[in-house]
């Protein structure tokens, strides 16, 4: 009978089998030794990897939930929310507020429970609670991811000089209490700007540098004061956080988050067929998702500007943007 081709697999020799067995055992031992030698490095790499993944996820949560107030770069928006990407925040903040835990715990506590108080604050919005354990929208692991993302600014923030530090001064930042009036020694223009902006946005009952702002009397609201000035709106609503009004939008130089607005008038009329410049800019403010400039992301620009400004104010802002 002719042997089939696969008869090479009919190994009968016990020596061959024992030999295979010995080789297999030795190879297995060598492989496990290799793992033994590399295991510590592997665990370190894995640890770093999961932290990195957490930061990645935190980034997308930050853009979706936090950036509209704290700024896409985390440097805060004047009067809207404080900076996180700040040297002061990373080096001094918890000491100043008298928090005894770590910065990580401080950030986690703030995100988890928010700062749900409208009393004695100069900010336009309050920090909402975020954890779903206390009525917020995020799961606990998502809060942790956000914490990891915020703390990842440390390297950048600690490299800031005091002038670059975007921290805004407000009531409980004790270390940065600075003179308020231009006559006093050490008067800082930045402080004055911050106060002016805060007042323009209608913040009440706060204290900057030890000076309490007086609450406006009844009827002194938006309606009574008439339309707010477009440049104030641009600052107080945080537009400047993403749009640079002093730079042109060209192929070489694009705004990193939102388009630069320096040369808005040049191309506002040609972005969308059938819309002139005014209509286009107006629509972009009221309904940002209607048209998104190529290269930018939809959903980043807040959708609620129509609620924050009167129609007159929007018209004024459009005019000011196009003529700037």
């Amino acid at each position: 009978m002719r042997k089939p081709w696969y008869s090479i697999f009919y190994v009968k020799s016990p020596i061959a089998k024992i030999g295979l067995g010995i080789l297999a055992v030795l190879a297995g031992i060598v492989l496990v030794l290799f793992l033994m030698a590399t295991e510590n490095k592997r665990m370190d790499a894995q640890t770093a990897s999961w932290e990195g993944r957490s930061i990645e996820k935190g980034a997308s949560l930050f853009i979706a939930n936090c950036a509209s107030c704290h700024g896409l770069d985390g440097k805060g928006l004047p009067v809207v929310a404080p900076a996180l990407n700040s040297r002061y925040f990373f080096s001094q903040r918890i000491d100043d507020v008298g928090f005894t835990g770590s910065l990580k715990q401080y950030v986690k506590g703030t995100i988890h429970s928010g700062r749900p108080s409208k009393v004695s604050t100069q900010w336009v919005n309050i920090m909402p609670t975020w954890s779903n354990q206390v009525g917020g929208p995020l799961r606990e692991d998502q809060v942790d991811q956000l914490v990891d993302f915020v703390l990842n600014w440390e390297e950048e923030a600690m490299a800031q000089t005091p002038e670059e530090d975007p921290w805004q001064f407000f009531q409980d930042s004790l270390s940065k209490q600075l003179p308020y009036s231009p006559d006093e020694p050490g008067y800082d223009e930045k402080v004055a700007e911050a106060i002016a902006a805060a007042e323009a946005a209608g913040a009440v009952g706060y204290e900057i540098g030890g000076v309490a702002a007086e609450a406006p009397t009844e009827g002194e609201g938006d309606a009574a004061a008439g339309p707010r000035a477009p440049e104030d709106l641009f600052a107080s609503l945080g537009c400047a956080g993403c749009h640079n009004i002093n730079a042109d939008q060209t192929d070489e130089s694009k705004g990193p988050v939102g388009p630069n607005l320096g040369n808005l008038a040049d191309h506002a009329g040609s972005r969308v067929d059938g819309e002139d410049a005014e209509t286009y800019v107006h629509q972009s403010i009221v309904d940002p998702g209607a048209f998104v400039v190529p290269g930018y992301m939809n959903g980043v620009m807040p959708q609620n500007f129509a609620d924050q400004m009167s129609e007159d104010e929007i018209q004024g802002l459009v005019e000011w943007l196009l003529s700037h």
Binding site: P14, I18, G19, G21, I22, V25, G28, I29, V32, E39
Partner: peptide
């Protein structure tokens, strides 16, 4: 030869068992 190789195999297996014990310990 066969007996010798079987002993060698047994010794290698013994080593592997020791190694498994170390792995389990860690």
């Amino acid at each position: 030869r066969r007996e010798f190789l079987t002993y060698a195999w047994g010794a290698a297996l013994g080593l592997a068992v020791l190694q498994t014990a170390a792995v389990s310990f860690f």
